[in-house]
Simulated assay, not measured.
Amino acid sequence: MMANHLLTGITFGLSLCIISWMVGILGGALLQKTSYFEKLSHLNLIPSKAVNRALGIEQFKWVVKNSFFRFLNQSIRVEGKRTDLASVRHQMTLAEINHLIGFLFVAAAAWYQSFNVSFVFGLGMIIPNVILNAYPSLLQQENKRRIDQLLNRQPRHNEDAALA
């Protein structure tokens, strides 16, 4: 019975995670128009590289880069030196927030189902939620930190022209 609830929870969680991507896109679009978006753009849930490494973010990045997932968000792509990093960072922030909204959506449903069906069913829902919503959000945060380092190293052409 427990194995059945776990497998059913994973299946239901997987389905709900795909729906949560749409919920996240809608929620992110609404949130983008508020003052909270700027505050969330600097969100850093796990600042430690060691913790990210322990969680397996590098392996997750490899999976994303070497599977069909790389085709999902084409606006987050650095093609060379002429890429507008600020625009890429904005798209990463939007994707990160969308995944966080999706994570909270599925987590709330899993919490409800833990009491309604069984704890194991709810726990089964969390497994795909972590893989399909939490890990992408953490990966976006890590990538944003790398882009921030690049942006801080770039000379500010507009400010330099204004000072001259």
Rank of each mutant, 00 (worst) to 15 (best):
F60C: 00
V63C: 02
V64N: 01
V64A: 15
K65G: 03
K65I: 00
K65T: 01
N66M: 05
S67A: 05
S67C: 06
F68C: 06
F68W: 15
F69S: 04
R70C: 10
R70W: 03
F71W: 08
F71P: 04
L72E: 07
N73H: 11
N73A: 09
N73I: 07
Q74A: 14
S75T: 09
I76M: 13
R77A: 09
V78C: 12
V78P: 07
E79G: 13
E79N: 08
E79V: 03
G80Q: 12
K81G: 15
K81D: 09
K81L: 14
R82T: 09
R82D: 13
T83D: 07
D84H: 02
S87N: 06
S87H: 02
V88C: 04
R89I: 01
R89S: 13
Q91N: 14
Q91T: 02
Q91G: 05
M92V: 01
A95K: 02
E96S: 09
E96T: 00
I97L: 10
I97R: 06
I97T: 10
L100Q: 14
L100I: 11
L100E: 13
I101F: 08
I101E: 15
G102S: 06
G102A: 08
F103S: 09
F103D: 07
L104P: 03
F105D: 15
F105S: 14
A107Q: 15
A107E: 15
A109P: 02
A109C: 12
A110C: 06
A110W: 06
Q113S: 10
Q113F: 12
Q113M: 12
F115Y: 15
V117Y: 14
V117R: 11
V117G: 07
V117C: 10
F121T: 01
F121N: 10
G122H: 05
L123Y: 12
L123E: 11
G124C: 09
G124I: 14
M125V: 03
P128M: 10
N129T: 13
N129V: 07
N129H: 13
V130R: 08
I131A: 11
I131K: 11
N133D: 14
N133F: 07
N133E: 09
A134W: 06
Y135T: 00
Y135M: 12
P136R: 03
L138M: 07
L139N: 02
Q140I: 00
Q140D: 04
Q140R: 03
N143F: 03
K144I: 13
K144W: 02
R145A: 13
R145P: 01
D148Y: 01
Q149T: 05
L150V: 05
L150D: 12
L151P: 06
N152L: 13
R153G: 11
Q154A: 10
